[in-house]
């Protein structure tokens, strides 16, 4: 019994290992495109310009250095939490390539997650290069400028931030994957993706620091999943001032909710997909 369990566990480890390595090799073939993705996701760094400039005015409750750090952190967090599975999924459904995957004894979603991890691994060096460029242009980010502190949130916060990043990735993945299921009924789901991207863009802290929001709005948003996918991990990285317990619990709740939604839609969707000719 225990032996069988151990065996099935090593079986899974090998399965995941092989899948990851092969998909990593696949992603390396697309390294030029993926490097361009590191540029295409530079929006936080553009917003950094506006907010850093605003921070200098002294009219806001934060300094220029804090804004530099915050948006660099947001860019880094985003590199881990980008989910593109909807584009891939739509392609698979429209071209009928999902069908052979359904005949595999491993759920396709396992492969999709591993593909994201492999893609992240390919993109990260380029993203770090871009961060390096900005740190070079604005060295105050690290040193804190005249009379400022060095940017060091501490090991504990870094660990928490990392955990929050990957937790956020899983949350974002299932949020989008649940939406992917619509592809079974309506072929062009990428238009839907543009809509789910909007709250992510404007309510997650990607284009403005959460601190500038009026208190009641902030309180409402803290019940939604959005701030936890960007603002929460980024804040942990910047100074560690974030509601840790609440953050992880809220993320867990939403993840479970979207996971259940995906499972329900998946079963319904497969029936419909099959009705349309698979």
């Amino acid at each position: 019994m225990t032996q069988a369990f151990a065996q099935s566990r090593t079986g899974w480890r090998r399965k995941l290992g092989v899948l990851f390595v092969v998909h990593y090799a696949e992603m390396l073939q697309y390294r030029v495109e993926i490097a361009l993705w590191a540029v295409a996701t530079m929006l936080p760094l553009i917003m950094m310009g506006v907010w850093a400039q605003a921070g200098e005015s002294g009219l806001f409750p934060f300094s220029q250095v804090l804004m530099l750090r915050y948006f660099i952190a947001v860019y880094l967090v985003w590199q881990v939490t980008i989910v593109w599975t909807i584009h891939h999924f739509e392609f698979l459904v429209v071209t009928g390539r999902l069908s052979p995957m359904l005949l595999h004894p491993v759920d396709p979603c396992v492969r999709f997650i591993l593909m994201h991890l492999a893609e992240q691994g390919t993109r990260l060096p380029f993203a770090l290069g871009i961060v390096g460029l900005f740190l070079f242009l604005y060295p105050d980010t690290l040193t804190g400028g005249e009379g400022g502190d060095i940017w060091w949130p501490g090991w504990w916060n870094i660990t928490l931030a990392l955990a929050a990043c990957y937790f956020a990735f899983i949350l974002r993945f299932f949020m989008q994957y649940a939406l992917c299921m619509v592809a079974f009924w309506h072929e062009r789901v990428t238009a839907l993706d543009a809509i789910q991207y909007l709250p992510h863009l404007f309510l997650s802290g990607m284009v403005f620091p959460f601190e500038v929001l009026p208190e009641p709005i902030r309180e409402v948003l803290l019940w939604t999943p959005f701030p936890y996918t960007v603002w929460f991990p980024a804040s942990l990285l910047v100074h560690g001032e974030a509601p840790v317990l609440r953050g992880f619990l809220t993320m867990a709740g939403w993840t479970v909710a979207f996971f259940i939604l995906y499972r329900v839609l998946w079963h319904k969707g497969l029936k419909h997909y099959s009705a349309m000719g698979a």
Binding site: E33, V39, A40, T41, M42, L43, I46, G49, V50, A52
Partner: peptide, 22 residues
């Protein structure tokens, strides 16, 4: 596709007056 995406991301700068940037 990705070159286009990269350019569009950079063009986002144009949403606000250029003097608002460093």
């Amino acid at each position: 596709y990705n070159i286009t995406m990269a350019m569009q991301a950079l063009v986002e700068t144009g949403r606000y007056p250029i003097t608002a940037y460093p």
